[in-house]
């Protein structure tokens, strides 16, 4: 089992890295969304290697099923746009931030990668629906209920943001002679 796990890990890790790179490198948003789908799936595989079966399912259901669909909706609504080619002026900050983040991520990997923590013995039913359910409803009841509140607030916020007209639109309506493009 361990051998197959490590094979699975290697495969999923490479897939996650590659699809992550693809997500940020794709020129079309729709392609990026597809790469992200692969990425989320590979993460679900990684969760499996960590004996988190329930989370792997949630990952697929919520991320791939709900969030990503939302992304695709919006992409379709706005229209598949391209990034303009990087201008010369933007080259410097982009290079700088790439170098900075790379050094940060690599040094973090170097430092934290030395952490030596043995994997502990798995209790019966670890990561299963029952165990997670017990943890959610017994240990983390309050945070779980708070999630419901957060989601409600988010929905209200979305309504507010997406429905209201912007100040500029309002001013354009008030003064119709103003330059309609």
């Amino acid at each position: 089992m361990s051998a197959s796990f490590s094979l699975l890990f290697s495969f999923a890790a490479v897939l996650a890295l590659a699809s992550g790179l693809g997500t940020i490198a794709a020129r079309r948003p729709l392609r990026a969304a597809m790469f992200l789908l692969v990425h989320l799936g590979s993460l679900a595989l990684l969760y499996l290697t960590l004996s988190a079966q329930f989370l792997a399912a949630i990952q697929v259901l919520v991320y791939a099923g709900a969030i990503l669909v939302l992304f695709v909706f919006v992409i379709m609504m706005i229209g598949p746009g391209y990034d303009r080619p990087t201008s010369f002026r933007a080259l410097f900050p982009k290079t700088l931030s790439t170098v900075l983040i790379l050094s940060l991520a690599l040094s973090m990997a170097a430092i934290l990668g030395r952490v030596d923590l043995p994997m502990s013995e798995l209790p019966e039913g670890f990561g299963g629906v029952k165990a997670i359910g017990l943890a959610l409803y017994r240990v983390a009841t309050v945070p779980f209920e708070l999630i419901a509140m957060v989601l409600t607030v988010a929905v209200l916020g979305v309504l507010g943001i997406a429905r209201k007209k912007t100040a500029i639109e309002l001013s354009r309506e008030a003064a119709p002679q103003g330059g309609e493009e």
Binding site: S2, A3, S6, G20, L50, I101, A105, L112, V115, L117
Partner: peptide, 18 residues
């Protein structure tokens, strides 16, 4: 042999960087 936790950490750091 279990997979080392450090592998996940390195992978996580790289993904975060990406």
């Amino acid at each position: 042999m279990d997979i080392e936790i450090s592998s996940y950490i390195v992978l996580g750091a790289l993904l975060f960087g990406i």
